[in-house]
Design a protein around this nucleic acid. Structure first.
Length: 561
DNA sequence: AGCCTACGCGCC
DNA sequence: AAAGGGCGCGTAGGCT
């Protein structure tokens, strides 16, 4: 363990070796060239680097020396996890905030990203909102030691330690992927857009095809409407005797009228144009790479988010534009049926575990309990995990409850906990927020009893049920995220062992893409499989449930699956 | 003009 | 009786 603090100005910094419990284990080293010092130590002893925030410190190290540390402890991310476990999700989590809590000082508000009221932003970021008289290295070491104490005092210290390590490793991978970028062929992208939308109009204008479709929609509806405005489209359909509830594709697909088909086509194409068209490419693709900014811990469940570019929503229609460099391949790895497998492993339900042991969990489930009807089996399982009870789901759920009692007991207990205002945890301890801090409560707006006397509390009940569905899903989604992060960390380590060339270039909940020289693709596939198994062992222990990662070695993302 | 919410749809 | 999880991002349309 080595604590690291960059100097406020210049490219130097200070290092301090630490014992495992966080106490200093040697003299502070002043390093005039911090990146070089990190590279040296990394090569010699591969320490776990302790720093205030990976997303602020690591990009500079990468930029200056190309160091890729094996391990780190990200104080800000760990603080966020530990605060969440203590029921304090919204609290400021910077080093300065943690330091203030440690010393019973008033907490500083963490600066918002790109905050408007211009303090010297870089300066504030470097100091992690520490008071002026606090030494950053002293604070870092103290807060780290305190975090280790809090981890050790938790109910499952081994799991929480793993969670913190995986979250921190994820931050390393996120910074690297943000820098490397996803290979993106502008030429292929352009070809796809032109096939769909026609030639690119000059000056960023809308493609003629879209204007054309809009006109034809208006003709079919007999009215001048903006097809992008549900408020205009709904009455236009109503006038034709077609009462729609919404203008969602799902509903439009049931409508037998030429305007509906045209509108569906318009929606599909206008979305491509607006969200991933030529303008998007000019904003986000440079030098053959789409560089997204990953936000580790951006979702309470532990899933990542991204800032800008919509990296986690690349439309299937455009995946042909993700093309490996010449002589390289994409190893696309996907953990199929991850969430039901997580439910099987978490609950230990023997029937579900047995289904998970077959290659296709849904098919096995269908054979076992749904007369071989795979679609119904899938609906039943999704209903159990999401809390759906409408339509046929209610019936199917009864079958699930009878046949897979342990699995259903787990999700239903999580739902009841949420409905009662409690919190639930993932396998590794990531904790759901409390409903009071949430947008799901206080949305009723019927405080004055506007709903009538006979219906008391219905809005509160709706909110409670809604929160119950959230916590029901949280235990699964967050535990799936535990597994995915552990897998990502293991894969990152194993890729490094193969060599400097194979690079993680994409991570999306249960899927990774590695960009690698073609000759190394088989080794990468092996690393992927091993990483998946390692994650299963670390996160779920001796479960019989397999977590297979399907890998495809392709030149083009569209050819995977 | 900028900010906010509702809606809708892309992904998992 | 009814009750569908998590995001990002674009447009529309109302607000200040």
């Amino acid at each position: 363990m080595v604590a690291l603090v960059p100097d406020l100005v210049g490219s130097g910094g200070r290092l301090c070796p630490l014992r495992p419990d966080g106490q200093p284990a040697g003299a502070v080293e002043a390093a005039p060239d911090l990146a070089a010092a990190v590279a040296r130590r990394e090569a010699a002893e591969r320490p776990r680097w302790v720093w205030a925030a990976t997303d602020e410190t690591y990009p500079r190290l990468l930029e200056r020396a190309g160091v890729r540390p094996a391990r780190c402890h990200d104080v800000k991310l760990v603080e966020s996890l530990l605060l969440g476990m203590a029921g304090r999700h919204g609290s400021p989590r910077s080093l300065g905030a943690a330091w203030a809590r440690l010393h019973d000082l008033p907490e500083p508000a963490d600066a918002r990203e790109g905050g408007a009221d211009d303090q010297p932003v870089l300066f504030a970021a470097d100091r992690q909102h520490l008071p002026q008289d606090a030494d950053p290295l002293t604070a870092l070491v103290a807060v780290y030691a305190d975090q280790r104490r809090r981890i050790a005092a938790s109910e499952h210290p081994d799991r929480v330690l793993l969670l913190c390590a995986a979250e921190s490793a994820g931050a390393l991978a996120a910074a690297e992927m943000g820098r490397d970028g996803l290979p993106w062929s502008a030429a292929v992208h352009d070809g796809l857009l032109t096939d769909l939308l026609g030639p690119r109009p000059a000056g960023g204008a809308r493609p003629a095809l879209l204007n054309d479709l809009a006109l034809r929609i208006q003709q079919a509806l007999g009215r001048t409407v903006n097809p992008d405005s549900p408020a205009q489209v709904l009455p236009a359909f109503a006038r034709l005797g077609i009462p729609l509830h919404t203008t969602r594709s799902h509903e439009l697909r049931e409508v037998d009228h030429p305007a509906a088909a045209l509108l569906l086509r318009y929606k599909e194409l206008s979305r491509i144009h607006a969200a991933h068209g030529w303008a998007w490419r000019e904003a986000w693709v440079r030098a053959g790479r789409f560089r997204a900014e990953y936000v580790v811990g951006g979702v309470v469940s532990g899933r990542w988010a991204t800032r800008g570019g919509g990296a986690l929503q690349i439309p299937r229609l455009l995946r042909g534009a993700v093309v490996a460099d010449p002589g390289y391949r994409l190893v696309v790895a996907d953990a199929g049926q991850l969430e039901p497998r997580v439910l099987a492993a978490l609950s230990g339900d023997p029937g579900l575990a047995k289904a998970a042991s077959a290659g296709d969990l849904y098919a096995a489930l269908a054979l076992d309990a749904f007369a071989g009807d795979r679609p119904r089996a899938k609906i039943a399982l999704l209903a159990a995990m999401y809390g759906q009870t409408s339509g046929e789901a209610g019936q199917l759920l009864a079958v699930m409850r009878r046949r897979f009692p342990a699995a259903l007991a787990l999700v239903e207990a999580a739902a009841r906990t949420g409905e009662a205002g409690g919190t639930v945890r993932s396998r590794l301890g990531r904790t759901s927020p409390t409903p009071s801090a949430s947008r799901f409560v206080d949305t009723g707006g019927d405080a004055d009893g506007a709903e009538g006397a006979g219906d008391f509390g219905s809005s509160d009940q709706r909110a409670a049920r809604s929160w119950g569905r959230f916590t029901r899903n949280f235990v699964i989604q967050a535990s799936a995220s535990d597994w995915a992060l552990a897998m990502l960390a293991a894969l990152r380590r194993r890729l490094t062992a193969i060599g400097p060339e194979p690079r993680l270039v994409f991570f999306q909940h249960d899927e990774v893409i590695v960009h690698t020289p073609a000759a190394l693709a088989p080794a990468v596939e092996e690393a992927v499989a091993a990483a998946g198994d390692e994650a299963r062992r670390l996160v779920f222990g001796p479960t019989p449930v397999p977590f297979p990662l399907e890998t495809n070695v392709v030149e083009c993302y569209a050819d995977a699956k």
